[in-house]
C-alpha cells in the first residue's frame, strides 16, 4: 500500500488535499485539527520523528497567481466580472515528519489566516518543536497555543516587526537594539 493510501485511510476527512512533488508527499489539513492529525500520524502510521517545522508567507505568490488568473480570464472572455475567489489564508506552517522504521517522509501543511494567526502547539508530542515554533512566531507572528515558553528566538524581544514576512524589506527598517544595563547594589 502506498504512503498516500495509508495516510488517506488514517486521516480520512481531515486530509483536504494531497500534493506530490518529486516524490515528496505533502498533505494539507485544517488548522484546527493539527494536533489530532499529528498524534494519529505518530501513533498509527509510525511517524515518530519531527524533522523540522517552519512557516511560509504566501502573500506574494497568491498576488502573482491572482494577476495571472485575471489576465487569462480577460483573454478568454469578458464575462463573469467580480466573482473573484478570496485568496486562501496567507501563511502556512509545515511539519516535516519522518518514520524511522520505514524511512518515509511526510509533509503536513496547515494554512493559517492573517487575522487569526493561532495554531495549537505540538510541543506536547515532540519536544523538538520547541525552538522551531518559537522561530515561526519570531519570523511570522504566528502564535502557538500551549507552547511552554513562546518568546522571540533569533531577534531580540523588543523587535517591532516580523522579518520573514514578504512585506518586510530586505534591508530592514532601521531597527536598533538598545541594551539597558542595570547594576545591583551590593
Amino acid at each position: 500500500m502506498s504512503l498516500k493510501d495509508r495516510v488517506e485511510r488514517c486521516l480520512g476527512d481531515y486530509a483536504t488535499a494531497f500534493v506530490e512533488c518529486r516524490g515528496d508527499l505533502c498533505v494539507e489539513v485544517p488548522v484546527e485539527d493539527v494536533l489530532k492529525v499529528i498524534a494519529s500520524l505518530k501513533d498509527e502510521l509510525g511517524f515518530d520523528f519531527l524533522s523540522d517545522l517552519f512557516g511560509v508567507d504566501n502573500s506574494v505568490l497568491f498576488e502573482k497567481k491572482a494577476k495571472a488568473a485575471k489576465k487569462k480570464k480577460k483573454a478568454e472572455d469578458e464575462a463573469l466580472p467580480g466573482d473573484d475567489v478570496p485568496p486562501p489564508p496567507r501563511f502556512e506552517v509545515n511539519y516535516l515528519l519522518l518514520s524511522l522504521e520505514r524511512n518515509e517522509r511526510l509533509q503536513v501543511k496547515i494554512r493559517v489566516p492573517e487575522d487569526k494567526p493561532e495554531v495549537d502547539s505540538v510541543t506536547g508530542i515532540w519536544k523538538a518543536a520547541t525552538w522551531p515554533e518559537r522561530e515561526v512566531y519570531d519570523m511570522y507572528g504566528i502564535k502557538f497555543k500551549g507552547h511552554p515558553d513562546l518568546r522571540r528566538l533569533l531577534m531580540w524581544d523588543e523587535f517591532p516587526a516580523y522579518p520573514l514576512r514578504k512585506d518586510y524589506p530586505l534591508e530592514g527598517q532601521g531597527e536598533e537594539r538598545h541594551l539597558s544595563y542595570t547594576t545591583t547594589e551590593s
Partner: peptide, 22 residues
C-alpha cells in the same frame, strides 16, 4: 513550481534544505 525537502548526513547530523519555487 513546487516544493521539496532534501536532507543529507552532514558531520553534525541531518542537514536539510527545503526549497519552494514559484
Amino acid at each position: 513550481e513546487g516544493e521539496v525537502y532534501h536532507a543529507i548526513e552532514s558531520p553534525n547530523g541531518e542537514l536539510g534544505f527545503f526549497v519552494k519555487s514559484d
